[in-house]
């Protein structure tokens, strides 16, 4: 199966390990990966801040970049969701609405793609350790992907899983919210870190680059002995 990877700008620039793990994992599951070179950012930071006009230019570039893709897969729930928002954003646009629809229809978040399209529930991973999982808001509420990551994690050998208290609560990232409303964001991420600590997990796993950068950055600053991992890295371990 041919998969075009929508790596996201965060992964491209800051978390290349996540990108690598995603490629290796999908290849192992029999996919052929391509990385459309002209991909940029999905436009979410500007869009969510209210700069709709500015962000549409980036969106059009993304629509073109993935025009010939069969499947588009992203290791970030929030960014995959953004592609699903495109038809809504270009509503009424004679040229771009249809194109945006086509893109949304073939776009999947990584775990969703593995479970729903590849129909694989056990990727044959082995990962030793006690871990908990952060359910990202955009991925669960807006993209509607709840079960796939849980299904895949439950089949990872050696993984001792523990539920995160208050898991439905936002971690306080929210893109530009994290700097614009830093005061409030700090309180939110602190409560999240406290909940992670309560689980006594060694690892915090997530499927969204933004949330992980936020929670991970705070864990790091506080010097807590918890490692933050993207779910692709866990599923790619053996």
């Amino acid at each position: 199966m041919k998969v075009s990877l929508f790596a996201t700008c965060l992964v491209d620039m800051f978390q290349s390990d996540v990108g690598k793990a995603t490629v290796e994992l999908l290849e192992r599951l029999g996919c052929e990966i391509d990385f459309p070179e002209s991909q940029v950012c999905c436009g979410q930071p500007a869009y969510n801040s209210g700069y709709v006009k500015e962000s549409k230019e980036a969106m059009k570039k993304m629509i073109d970049a993935f025009a010939s893709a069969e499947y588009v897969v992203s290791p970030s729930g929030s960014c995959a969701y953004m592609f699903h928002e495109y038809p809504h954003i270009f509503k009424g646009d004679p040229v771009w609405e249809t194109k945006a629809k086509r893109l949304a229809e073939k776009t999947y978040e990584l775990t969703q793609f593995i479970v729903e399209v590849l129909k694989v529930e056990d990727v044959g991973a082995r990962f030793e350790g006690r871990a908990t999982y952060h359910t990202s808001c955009h991925m669960t509420r807006l993209l509607g992907v709840n079960k796939a990551p849980m299904t895949l994690l439950s089949n990872v050998k050696g993984l001792e899983f523990t539920q995160l208290p208050g898991k439905e609560q936002c971690c306080g990232f929210g893109g530009t919210f994290s700097v614009k409303m830093a005061q409030i964001s700090e309180q939110m991420v602190d409560e999240k870190v406290q909940h992670v600590e309560e689980t006594q997990a060694d690892y915090l796993i997530g499927a969204d680059a933004g949330c992980l950068m936020n929670i991970g950055g705070r864990i790091d600053r506080k010097g807590k002995p918890i490692r933050v991992l993207h779910i692709a890295e866990v599923l790619n371990s053996r």
């Binding site: 790596a7 992964v11 491209d12 620039m13 800051f14 978390q15 290349s16 990108g19 690598k20 990385f35 070179e37 830093a182 964001s185 700090e186 991420v189 950068m213 936020n214 991970g216 950055g217 705070r218 790091d220 600053r221």
Partner: peptide, 15 residues
């Protein structure tokens, strides 16, 4: 409030 990751020397796309 938080640490920010340093940009990767080798971007994912280069890899």
């Amino acid at each position: 409030i938080r640490e920010f990751p340093a940009p990767n020397k080798e971007r994912f796309r280069d890899w």
